[in-house]
Simulated scan of single mutants.
Amino acid sequence: MRELISFPCEGDMLAGTLDDAAGATGLLIVSGGNEIRCGAHRGMALIAATLAAGGVPVFRFDRRGIGDSEGANYGYAESGPDIAAAAQAFRTVAPNVKRIVGFGNCDAATALALFHRAAGIESLVLANPWVGDEEDGLPPANAIRSHYADRARDPKQWLRLATGGINIGKAISGLRKASKGSPQPGNPIAEQMTAALGDTPHVFLLANRDNTAIRFAGAWPHGGDKRECATDSHSFARPGDDAWLLAQLREALA
């Protein structure tokens, strides 16, 4: 059963959705960017319905200033109180839930890594964590090399080059960056995540041709449990991505 919930967070009322089920382990979905709780292409709503049908209660919410929630939007870096309030609301409306797994994509994954302890979240599934943008506005060097390798194998791209369909200046800038390799100085967001995660069980889910995921993989100073999906879709929206994502979530919830 799907139920709409309102709950307080520092004087504002937030909107949430509970897909109820009888399980003792629940999934708290945190939305990334300025995305509302249904997710890109309704992906999070579909995940919630599917997992709940299999016995897993799922709670989604709009943080302050997003979607149906009140307040001002201060971004992921100030979303700790929102996540804690949502986790508390989840436990209140679904008292059968004894363990919460947090799941987020992009800067929602970053926020969960940073703020999960205060919310009492026991385990994390972190998809394509955001660790900042490239200073030059270009994709990461590894992504550029992969992109041009794919294009070099496509005869249509050679035709585009010959007919002026490719921005030569941009291509030269990208190739110049790719040729220099990808030195990885310390990334402050990755370092903050490292300190905050500690010994919390977590898994990283990476879309292996997504620029955000590629940048994270290059900036992350540790190994850890990293799982790759063969897709360029940041929101895992390509055919087959949804089945892969659900399988990873079910394993984390088991």
Rank of each mutant, 00 (worst) to 15 (best):
R2Y: 01
R2M: 11
C9S: 15
M13P: 00
L14R: 06
A15V: 07
A15S: 13
T17Q: 08
L18K: 00
A21Q: 07
A22T: 14
G23F: 11
T25W: 09
G32C: 12
I36K: 01
H41C: 08
M44L: 12
M44G: 00
A45M: 02
L46D: 13
I47L: 15
A48R: 03
A49N: 09
L51N: 13
G55Q: 05
P57F: 13
V58W: 00
D62W: 02
R63G: 15
G65Q: 11
E70N: 01
A72F: 10
G75P: 01
G75D: 03
Y76Q: 05
E78H: 15
S79G: 14
G80P: 10
A87Q: 07
A94M: 05
V97N: 06
V97L: 03
F103R: 01
T110G: 00
A111F: 05
A113W: 04
R117I: 04
I121W: 09
E122Y: 06
W130T: 00
W130N: 02
D136G: 07
N142W: 06
R145N: 03
R145I: 05
R145K: 10
R145G: 15
A149F: 05
W158N: 03
R160D: 13
L161C: 09
G164C: 05
G169V: 00
A171C: 13
I172T: 10
L175A: 08
R176Y: 01
K177T: 06
S179M: 11
G181R: 06
S182L: 07
G186A: 12
N187Y: 06
I189D: 08
E191Y: 03
M193E: 06
A195T: 15
T200A: 15
T200R: 11
H202R: 14
F204A: 07
L205C: 09
L206N: 02
N211E: 12
T212A: 09
P221D: 10
P221A: 09
G223T: 09
K226W: 13
R227S: 06
C229E: 00
D232E: 13
H234N: 09
F236Y: 15
G240S: 10
G240C: 09
D242L: 11
A243F: 04
